[in-house]
Design a protein around this nucleic acid. Structure first.
Lengths: 209, 209
DNA sequence: ATTTTACGGGACCACCGAGTACCGTAAGAG
DNA sequence: CTCTTACGGTACTCGGTGGTCCCGTAAAAT
């Protein structure tokens, strides 16, 4: 019962009218929109169908349940995360942090809406986190580790902790304050928090030298 | 309609059997427990009543709706927040940050569960945030501002941003990772993130001097 | 042309949970 | 003792929604 249908149901189906190739994405998009606007529990399949310009039958032909649909919708938001390799630590960080700036943050909002509201199902939780939260967070972590390996950052800094600051802030703002990170805050975060924590003085000369 | 019953319903009632003075708290406690365990939408009034050892009638005699009950339960968690005044910035920060360490974090979990799941009602959201999240966050902010005023911290640091780091991390961990802040992480946060961001070098000599 | 499967959409069912009503009983005030 | 209100508990109403069925139609293969 709690099994999560990861792929498509079954039939390869070479016979008969083929499925509308665009409809699947339209349904997923509609799902995301409704979740964003109403929250998970107030998300009704009828509304999703209506917004996707289709019927519930078409939805259930693709996913076995509302839960499966929502998981798929969450996964469809999986952002392209490119590991930055600008010349400087600061620029690398900026690129990573920009993943969290407003437009991209749609995904985080979906995550926030789905997470706690979802019938406490660990599969769902895991799927949502893995597809939405993890990639961007991992990029940040990797960048920091790389600069530590390069010797530019003191290996003694708790990289995991520092790497989790921005994801946390982004999630917090979006979930509680209902506003994504703006560019300005993102830059401030890098210059006034991350770099100092990484032992790199930029914003102000912290030393009297 | 969307009005939130802040106080008790109406009757002062000097006549007849008085209300059980303990029952109210028992119901609130049960509510918190169920929310913690099941999440908001899976929280059924029947279960709350059962756990509180009472009936639904007794609940509805005190609160007009499930929403009102949940708000009251959230407010009942309002922690005592004492503005610390140890001798040092570090110690003040530690006191503040400890508000977020595990046991206290129960409140945050309730917040997380209630927030996104709650029928998108801004009153509810506001009430929950104000009673649970704000006090501790405000304390942190005040402490930082005070040390800036005292001249120990550069006024150029974005106090609001820095003050929001710990609340964000706490919320993030509790909402996503299902684990509160532990003491160890809290200390690391102060020493390796907050203090550096505030321009106070402690963990490592950031200067070559 | 026939078969097969998808389509949009309407009707429907089954279940679940908030809220209500009412029971017999307990505990105060007068 | 009587009146009034709270108590624990059960049974009920009733609206909402996930999920199913089925319709007439559309689009592909044979």
């Amino acid at each position: 019962m709690p099994g999560v249908t990861t792929g498509e149901p079954e039939t390869p189906a070479t016979l008969g009218r083929p499925r509308d190739p665009d409809l699947e994405q339209a349904i997923l998009d509609a799902t995301v929109e409704v979740i964003l606007q109403r929250g998970y529990s107030a998300t009704k399949l009828d509304e999703i169908a209506r917004r996707a310009g289709t019927g519930k039958a078409a939805i259930y032909r693709r996913w076995a349940s509302k839960t499966d649909l929502v998981i798929a919708a969450a996964q469809s938001l999986q952002a392209e995360v490119t590991l930055p390799d600008e010349g400087s630590l600061r620029d690398d960080l900026l690129v990573c942090v920009r993943h969290y700036v407003t437009p991209t943050a749609r995904a985080a909002l979906v995550l926030a809406n789905v997470l706690n509201e979802m019938p406490h199902d660990d599969d769902v939780r895991e799927a949502a986190i893995a597809s939405i939260a993890r990639p961007a967070a991992q990029a940040l972590r990797t960048v920091i580790d790389r600069w530590i390996a390069g010797g530019a950052v003191d290996p003694a800094v708790p990289a995991g902790l520092v790497a989790s600051i921005v994801p946390s802030m982004a999630f917090h703002r979006v979930a509680l304050l209902r506003q994504g990170l703006d560019e300005e805050t993102a830059v401030a975060l890098v210059d006034s928090v991350l770099l100092p924590a990484l032992g790199v003085a930029t914003p102000r000369p912290a030393c009297d030298a």
